[in-house]
Design a protein around this nucleic acid. Structure first.
Length: 896
RNA sequence: AGUCCCUUAGCUCAGUUGGUUAGAGCACCUCCCUUACAAGGAGGGGGCCCACGGUUCGAGUCCGUGAGGGACUACCA
């Protein structure tokens, strides 16, 4: 064995070595599936005959800054990835970033404006050049931030949604979908952002509660201006685009009005009164002005009645040139000023009936925050119905499993109510739509290559770009090499194993990936969807810059270390509930890492210079009860962690490890091992080594640092490439019951000392009575250890010597065949009365338990109908309680 | 308006197909700086598991109703 220098471990855990290990993983190419899998194959630890495991990282905005949501995503994904890799599975974690068309476009426009440059003056090419500059400035930052979390992503495969090959994939997808007739161009009413001057998808519109008004306006009848209908509206300015007034056909009040005409005030234009079921006679006045070009419902009504769609706004929501009457002078007026002008005019004309207070929800743009204008325009749409039906079926049939299950129904419901997706955007930054218009003929061609001009045609490319989410929807394809269907990664890693992300993009992204990726492959893009919760602050509030309660993950990494952050995020991650992150929690989990740290220091304390790699092989000889027990516990913990992760129960995995390491290993086992030092040395080292492996997916840096400190570990020998503990077998089937006796005996003696106000370190004499119920073998396996830990002067096995009065502590473990009393001579006790009280109290508690068991067991129905093994268990319990109660009573009687 | 989630110790929360005396951390009380760790150890107090009803031998867990809190989707001119 090479003579490796065992570095001295720091006194406490700190994150100062994180960078060293990130470099070591890079050097060993741990995250390259080919490399790590080859390593496992060589060592005989590969999981053969199993599908590869792959996660595609949800690409953050390339110009973004890592936030807590990203940190959570990276922590969870990398935990799963490292766990699978250690299990010997061929594992791919593919990182990437998103071009974030609309967000980056906006940032760069703002950035230019700050320099006094109007982006439109640069022209398309010039602007895009600026965008690339901006991105090159930011891209290294987010990469560095992601890497600081210690993720083991394969950076040799890193992707950007605007990489040339991904662009090719996107254009190919668009052309293919068009060929299939799923993409079409149409003039429709869309959500329009007057500030961004682009269309938005339904999902990019945020509804906000706003205090507003309802104006009741009088609309005079054309042939008799003394008569009028009163319409109620929240947007009086849109009356300039009215093309009808609608009433309910069943409404008796207005029956005679249908078919007549209204002469619109201000404009003087005449519009018909139509009957339509859409109108609710109960609401407002029962008469509704219809503006097909500026309201989604009115658009529908207008279509049914063949009404003209009269647009009144310019793209930046100002009154157009060319309106009739007084409105002609309002050209260029902003929509909100136009509202005032219209109301003022109605007042002047004596046609304003009244104004009511009204709270309504108005759609605002996600990006710019201004009120979205329903606007008539030509856009590209993607037909959703057939793709949605297929996506729905995948989920219904369980081909895609959504965790937590609550999102299952939400997903299906959305698939049922989906509208066609408007995929074009009037922006420059993004993937330009591969469509060409002929100015002369008005023809449109969709193709990868620009069509050649000829005598009849002059082609220009469609200026619009695609919605960011269009390229994201085929992320599982393009990152793996599609449209090359023979691409190696596509063949090997598609469908991917898990799609891990936040529920806020379930519809934006997850649903669209399912629909679109399967459209081209006929296969689901991933088998499981795991939606993580939202990270909130310690008070349960959403983190936001304006509130100033943002906990910056980068600051946390600096202050607590990446491992503490990863561990904490995992520990707080339960299904179906948001998590509250706080410094208190981070402190707590950092302390946990420190515990592992110090346990390792303890184990290595007397090992300086040793090169015996004791932790590498499973000890065969277990001399003491606690040795057997900790090995069995280790196996249990390994299996439980494995199961928890396979079900995305992230908190449970941490919980299992916490209890196993802190309570079982440190509090009980290591204390025992101090008594049986050489005998237990192999076990201590082995279990510790396994603990480092179990903890590695959560705390990769600290576990590597500790591992490297183990004697005999050679340079470049990484935990990251070790085999994940599988759990062996139970050498002794009654080990838990026996150890239960062990623990209870010690606890009872400690308890006795505390109640008797004896110092814990005061050594007392004790005897074990009821020897016939306990095998000499078990006693031998734990006698010395009990003495040491419980601080006993003497501890013998034998019958109670009646001549020595004393108090007794019953300890029973029926399953192990143990029913004994620990006898402490009366001379050891300071206060006899206290002891009597203690016994009295315990008798009461125990008798209550006996009664509860009696009640259960005397219930005929229970005995008859419950599973027999359960009834047996209850009987055993009763026996235990009864035994204990009797002994306690005898003990009390002896003291009296 | 519809759908879904939550309500368990003073606080923050676990509690997988119903089945040990309902758990943990923090906080609190007592004791211990015992040579891995005071970011530690030992012991202790603290719970009609929101309410009512139902199913069951058995309910924190399943069903119904109600109260309080939250999320999402849709939306009335």
């Amino acid at each position: 064995m090479a003579d490796t220098q065992t570095p001295e471990l720091d006194k406490a855990y700190g994150s100062q070595h994180d960078g060293k290990w990130q470099a070591a993983w890079d050097k060993a190419q741990v995250s390259k599936p080919e490399v790590s899998y080859a390593h496992h194959l060589k060592n005989g630890t590969a999981a053969t005959g199993q599908d590869p495991f792959s996660i595609l990282m949800p690409p953050p905005n390339v110009t973004g800054v890592l936030h807590q949501g990203h940190a959570l995503m990276l922590a969870l994904e990398d935990t799963l990835i490292r766990w699978q890799r250690m299990k010997g599975v061929e594992t791919l974690y593919l990182p990437g970033t998103d071009h974030a068309s609309i967000a980056v476009n906006m940032q760069v426009v703002k950035h230019l404006a700050a320099k006094g440059v109007n982006h439109r003056d640069l022209g398309r090419e010039g602007f895009i050049e600026e965008c690339w500059k901006w991105i090159e400035d930011y891209r290294p930052r987010i990469f560095a931030q992601m890497k600081s979390m210690g993720i083991s992503a394969d950076w040799s495969r890193v992707k950007f949604t605007m990489d040339p090959d991904l662009n090719k994939g996107v254009e190919n997808a668009f052309v293919e979908l068009h060929k299939k007739g799923l993409i079409y161009r149409e003039q429709k009413l869309v959500n329009w952002s007057p500030i961004g001057q682009t269309v938005l998808s339904d999902l990019e519109v945020i509804f906000k509660e706003q205090k507003g008004h309802i104006w009741h306006l009088k609309y005079p009848l054309a042939d008799d201006p003394s008569k009028f209908l009163i319409v109620a509206t929240t947007r009086p300015e849109t009356m300039l685009g009215d093309s009808a007034v609608a009433v309910n056909p069943k409404d008796e009040r207005y029956k005679s009005w249908v078919g007549k005409k209204i002469k619109l005030p201000i404009l003087g234009r005449e519009i018909p009164i139509v009957a339509d079921d859409y109108v609710d006679p109960e609401f407002g006045t029962g008469a509704v002005k219809i503006t097909p070009a500026h309201d989604f419902n009115d658009f529908e009504v207008g279509a049914r009645h063949n009404l003209p769609k009269l647009n009144i706004f310019t793209p930046d929501a100002k009154i157009i040139v060319g309106l009739e009457g007084k409105a002609a002078s309002w050209a260029g007026l902003d929509r909100f000023d136009a509202r005032k002008a219209v109301v003022e005019e109605f007042k002047t004309l004596g046609l304003l009936e009244k104004i009511e207070e009204h709270n309504n929800r108005v759609g605002t743009s996600e990006r710019w925050g201004e009120v979205v204008e329903p606007y008539l325009s030509h856009q590209w749409f993607l037909k959703m119905d057939s793709m949605a039906a297929r996506a729905k079926k995948y989920v219904e049939d369980g081909e895609i499993e959504i965790v937590p299950h609550e999102f299952h129904n939400q997903f299906l419901r959305w698939m049922e109510n989906i509208h066609d997706w408007c995929v074009s955007r009037q922006l420059w930054w993004g993937q330009q739509i591969p469509a060409y218009h002929c100015q002369k003929t008005g023809e449109i061609k969709v193709s990868l290559e620009a069509p050649k001009d000829d005598a009849k045609h002059t082609w220009t490319r469609d200026p619009d770009v695609l919605d960011t989410w269009f390229s994201s929807a085929i992320w599982p394809l393009t990152t793996l090499g599609w449209p090359d269907e023979n691409a190696k990664d596509l063949e090997k890693f598609y469908p991917t194993s898990v799609l891990e992300t936040g529920f806020d993009i379930l519809f934006f992204w997850v649903a669209r990936m399912v629909m679109m990726s399967s459209e081209f492959t006929g296969k689901v893009p991933f088998k499981k969807v795991y939606m993580h919760p939202m990270v909130r602050d310690e008070h349960g509030d959403k983190m936001s810059k304006t509130k100033g309660n943002v906990i910056d993950p980068l600051e946390i990494v600096k202050e607590f270390g990446a491992d503490a952050l990863r561990l904490t995020l995992n520990a707080l991650c339960v299904q179906g509930r948001d998590m509250r992150l706080s410094n208190e929690r981070l402190d707590f989990y950092r302390a946990f890492i420190n515990k592992v740290w110090n346990a390792t220091r303890f184990a290595l304390m007397n090992d300086k210079g040793s090169t015996d790699a004791l932790w590498m092989s499973r000890p065969k000889q277990l001399k003491h009860l606690h040795d057997e027990w900790i090995m069995a516990k280790l196996d249990n913990a390994s299996r439980e962690v494995d199961k928890a992760w396979s079900e995305f129960r992230m908190q449970e995995a941490v919980d299992v490890l916490y209890h196993f390491i802190w309570s079982d290993f440190c509090d009980w086992y290591l204390e025992c091992a101090k008594a049986t030092r050489e005998d237990s040395d192999k076990v201590v080292k082995f279990v510790l080594g396994e603990i480092l492996k179990l903890m590695h997916p959560l705390c990769p840096h600290a576990t590597e640092e500790l591992w490297a400190g183990m004697p005999g570990v050679q340079d470049g020998d990484l935990v990251a490439l070790k085999s994940f503990p599988q759990g062996g077998g139970f050498p002794n089937p009654t080990v838990f019951a026996e150890f239960k006796f062990f623990q209870e005996a010690i606890t009872a003696i400690r308890n006795l000392k505390a109640e008797a106000k004896l110092s814990p370190s005061k050594k007392i004499n004790a005897k074990l009575s009821g020897a016939q119920k306990m095998s000499q073998d078990v006693f031998d396996k734990c006698r010395d250890t009990i003495m040491l830990i419980a601080k006993l002067e003497s501890f013998e096995l034998g019958d109670l010597d009646k001549s020595i009065p004393g108090t007794r502590v019953p300890v029973t473990a029926v399953e192990a065949g143990i029913s004994v009393e620990i006898v402490v001579p009366i001379a050891e006790l300071k206060d006899l009365e206290e002891e009597k009280l203690r016994l009295q109290k315990e008798i009461e508690v125990t008798e209550k338990l006996v009664m509860a068991q009696d009640a259960k067991l005397s219930n005929e129905n229970f005995v008859k109908r419950a599973p027999p093994e359960l009834v047996d268990k209850e009987r055993v319990k009763k026996e235990e309680f009864l035994d204990k109660a009797q002994k306690l009573k005898k003990a009390l009687a002896d003291l009296a």
